[in-house]
Design a protein around this nucleic acid. Structure first.
Length: 308
RNA sequence: GGGGAGGUACCAAAGUGGCCAACUGGGGCAGACUGUAAAUCUGCUGACUUAUGUCUUCGUAGGUUCGAAUCCUGCCCUCCCCA
């Protein structure tokens, strides 16, 4: 059964991921050149054209060194989410696999990787009015009131969620209210049939080294002009795309909540924390094969040995 | 040399006789997470451990006390002021 399905696949999707700052970009480019595979970015923030320095977008030289997709092609002013990304990425990957045996999916957005490799259940995105209504209720009556509401509308999910997590509770309620069905009844967690076979590669390095690189990269961003980039975006700080490490902290500084040095320290700290969360996410998938960023040769050998 | 302040776990910082293995924050570690995901949230952080369990901690050495991080004494160290 599995073998039959595998044979119908058009090609291999080489997923190359790792925590922020490990060195995914360089490795991906080398691999791309070696196996002649285009790179599809899987990064929830590098996709926005208005953000460049703070998201560590590949340099012009790096972009020129390999075929890249989904880098700085959206605007922070248009709403975007991982459901949309799933659809667009799948379409693109299918198209690329007509000309290539391998496509590289690289980036650190774990949920986005899952969206592509596994797929989401067909749950509709939230209705704006419903979301606004719920936000108002939260403001007025507090989180406990939303919790109670969820317990009525979807007792199953209410038994699972962390009741401190307003974002989760909100989403569940949004779905319940917009579809008229319990959120949990729509969350099947079923994998979608895909046109490719995924090959999971995790780039990792010793924690201390990773943290050092993150700190250094933040300093580099600052000297590249992150503060000015953020200042230009400050008027739009309410946009979801800008709720991002590297920007939020500077917005707080512009708002007089902390001095610049503190903001920079917080960017470092929050980047480290983010990296840690990423690793927790990746660890959940046992299919990842881990490599050091310098192991380009081994990575390429690993990929080619998995030729169908 | 004289006067003052202080030494608490990785760091900062509460605690000033029992409810203290010690508030809180940082840092660190671990985890959850299917449409906000660079987001949102949770747990642990002296050791051994299944533990409402045992053992070792609050500069250091003694002492007082049924009982001390908390009181007393000596010593060491840090900072400030006067010499």
């Amino acid at each position: 059964m599995t073998a039959t399905l595998t044979m119908n696949k058009r090609g291999t999707l080489v997923v190359i991921t790792g925590a922020t700052g490990v060195g995914k970009t360089d490795t991906s480019i080398k691999v791309s050149q070696a196996i002649d595979a285009p790179i599809v970015s899987c990064d929830s923030r590098q996709i926005f054209k208005e953000m460049r320095i703070g998201t560590a977008v590949p340099s012009d030289e790096q972009l020129a060194a390999a075929e890249h997709h989904f880098i700085r092609c959206r605007s922070i002013f248009e709403p975007y989410n991982c459901g949309q990304y799933e659809k667009e990425a799948i379409e693109l990957i299918d198209k690329l696999l007509q000309r290539h045996s391998h496509v590289i999916l690289t980036g650190g957005s774990g949920l986005y990787i899952d969206a592509v490799t596994r797929g989401f259940d067909p749950i509709p995105p939230a209705d704006d009015n419903v979301r606004t209504m719920l936000a108002a209720k939260l403001e007025r009556e507090g989180l406990a009131s939303l919790s109670e509401m969820l317990a009525r509308l979807d007792p199953d999910y209410a038994g699972l969620v962390d009741h401190h997590n307003r974002q989760r509770i909100m989403r569940a309620l949004e779905v319940c209210l917009t579809t008229g069905r319990p959120y949990s009844s729509l969350r099947k967690g079923e994998s979608r049939e895909r046109n490719f076979v995924p090959l999971f590669i995790l780039i990792d390095r010793p924690r201390a080294e990773l943290y050092r690189r993150i700190d250094q990269r933040v300093d580099a961003m600052i000297s590249e002009g992150l503060v000015d980039e953020a200042r230009g975006l400050h008027p739009f700080s309410h946009l979801n795309a800008l709720r991002t490490v590297g920007y939020s902290e500077l917005f707080d500084h512009f708002d007089g909540l902390c001095d610049l040095d503190t903001a920079i320290e917080l960017i470092k700290r929050n980047s480290r924390r983010y990296a840690k969360r990423q690793l927790t996410w990746f660890r959940r998938n046992p299919e990842y094969k881990t490599f050091s960023p310098d192991d380009t040769e081994q990575i390429i050998a690993y990929i080619t040995s998995h030729k169908q």
